[in-house]
Design a protein around this nucleic acid. Structure first.
Lengths: 141, 141
DNA sequence: TGGTATTTTGATAATGGTTATCATTACCAA
DNA sequence: TTGGTAATGATAACCATTATCAAAATACCA
């Protein structure tokens, strides 16, 4: 099942309505395949359908997060950015503190270690965020 | 060297002035030994010295972070919280998504893995944030 | 010690991302 | 189609944080 269909099903399953705006915002978001701010997404959507409101973009992004189709990040102290979670599995981020470049990575061994540590402290982990801040190859002296 | 002395030295080293407010805010902060918001710290400080302004608390917290004596966190989407970094070494956090309880942990093996992964991607890591979200022992069904 | 340049402070206005409000519109099951 | 409910758009409100600026405090030097 594609992501768009997945979102439509999510809406139907909870008695939420499938609207033109939600479909458009969700489709536009999924097509970006990068970390996006609500504002950026709003501008893209507005090109196609100028009457869509910023509030609806925020509302739809929240829905996409609840549906497990998006994830919200706040790298450093900047404003929220969202990324589509499509088929990709969970992954973490390397953030260059100089140029802002973001690279994704994924490492099962770390995930396993995390679960072990949490269990030893009596926690049951649902999700996690791992962010490594430093200098990317280009920004190194 | 104690943390207060350390902060005073940090100020002196950069030609910044050591003021009554900075000393009081810094001392109050160090004594808390927990994750604190700017507002909370402001209230505590105000008990002792009612004329200290909130802006100065924010300014001093920023200074403490630059001095390496504090660290800023934004767990989930809540407002910033700060923690004293005193003698404790770097550590990570387990956050209970139900009751908000925060537990610290530290694990050298994870740190080592992180550095290896980053290096393999050409990154030079300066700092990192690892947050595990889930249910603490008390909140588990 | 007193004078002075400079920094810091406190009060408050401004900022900016995000959310709440509410009248209007769109959806969808019957 | 209709009726009931949910969603939308415009915009006001929110609220944590930052900027502004006149007044006060500090550090340095003679």
């Amino acid at each position: 099942m594609g992501n768009t269909a997945c979102f439509t099903k999510y809406l139907a399953d909870r008695g939420l309505k499938s609207t033109r705006q939600r479909e458009l915002i969700s489709a536009t978001f999924m097509a970006i395949n990068d970390h996006t701010s609500a504002e950026e997404l709003y501008l893209r959507v507005a090109k196609e359908e100028p009457d869509v409101g910023l509030a609806t973009v925020y509302r739809t992004l929240k829905l996409l997060c609840s549906a497990g189709l998006a994830r919200e990040h706040r790298f450093g102290n900047s404003s929220s950015r969202y990324e589509p979670l499509s088929i990709k599995q969970h992954h973490d981020h390397l953030i260059c503190t100089k140029c802002g470049y973001v690279e994704e990575f994924e490492h099962p061994k770390i995930e396993k270690l995390q679960d072990e540590i949490a269990a030893s402290l009596g926690f049951e982990v649902m999700t996690h965020k791992l962010e490594l801040y430093g200098l990317c190859r280009k920004c190194q002296p």
